[in-house]
């Protein structure tokens, strides 16, 4: 239990929050790594998954990519990239994090697009909508909840994995856990772990709230149309 009070002391000591190796800097690094990785993953995965879902092709690939992502250890990929061509650095971390964020984004977006009620799609076609209109005005709004769920899973996973990036010498909050373990400073290890856990829960909570907002969105549309 003394470690817990030690961790609390570590967290509440102002000097630990400042400086180039303080909690403030590490938190910023963690958020930047996460933001960049999730951003790139969205830019790559969403158009592909939504396109495939719209066309109804590539389902096996879209669904199995998540199974592959589960079986491949993130840690192994990080280390392979770090001692391989990319070397140790932020690029390696972002590449590895992006790779693992793509899987839940693709699978959930694809499933979301495929689960759109065929009746709604046929009705839209019957009203004379083109493929693009169908995509923008029917499929995307109805698939939005699952797309946001994919984003939430990806973001939480990346926040978690960014911690492991400290193992290959990257920045972020994982530094405290890894350096603390290496130097036997258990207050710092546990304090860092509390910060990481809190960050993961906060990100999850925020995106959960976004998902609630999005999920309530499409229901308003038919109501508005009945005027």
């Amino acid at each position: 239990m003394s470690t817990l009070t030690g961790a609390f002391d570590w967290l509440t000591t102002g000097s630990n929050w400042r400086g180039s190796e303080g909690i403030g800097t590490r938190l910023t690094e963690h958020l930047l790594l996460t933001g960049a990785s999730v951003g790139i993953a969205c830019a790559v995965a969403l158009p592909v998954a939504v396109g495939l879902g719209h066309l109804g092709r590539g389902g096996t690939l879209a669904i199995n990519i998540s199974n592959v992502g589960r079986a491949v250890p993130t840690f192994a990929v990080l280390v392979l990239l770090a001692i391989g061509p990319l070397g140790i650095g932020d690029t390696t971390t972002v590449v590895a994090l992006t790779l693992f964020a793509i899987a839940p984004l693709v699978t959930n977006s694809y499933v979301g697009m495929r689960e759109v009620d065929p009746g709604a799609k046929e009705a839209a076609r019957g009203m004379g909508m083109s493929g693009g209109q169908l995509l923008r005005r029917v499929e995307l709004p109805l698939a939005a909840p699952l797309i946001v769920l994919g984003l939430r899973l990806a973001a939480v996973q990346v926040v978690a994995t960014a911690t492991i990036a400290a193992l290959i010498g990257g920045g972020g909050l994982g530094r405290f856990v890894v350096d603390g373990l290496a130097n036997n400073r258990h207050d710092e290890v546990v304090g860092g772990a509390i910060l990481v856990a809190a960050l993961a829960l906060i990100v999850d909570g925020i995106l959960f709230a976004v998902a609630r907002l999005v999920a309530s969105g499409p229901r308003k549309v038919p109501a508005a149309r009945t005027r």
């Binding site: 669904i63 491949v72 899987a103 839940p104 699978t107 959930n108 499933v111 996973q157």
Partner: peptide, 15 residues
């Protein structure tokens, strides 16, 4: 399988 399982659990492999 994939439809119900994937959204329910984050595909976090080694994090």
């Amino acid at each position: 399988g994939p439809v119900s399982v994937v959204p329910a659990q984050p595909g976090r492999s080694a994090a």
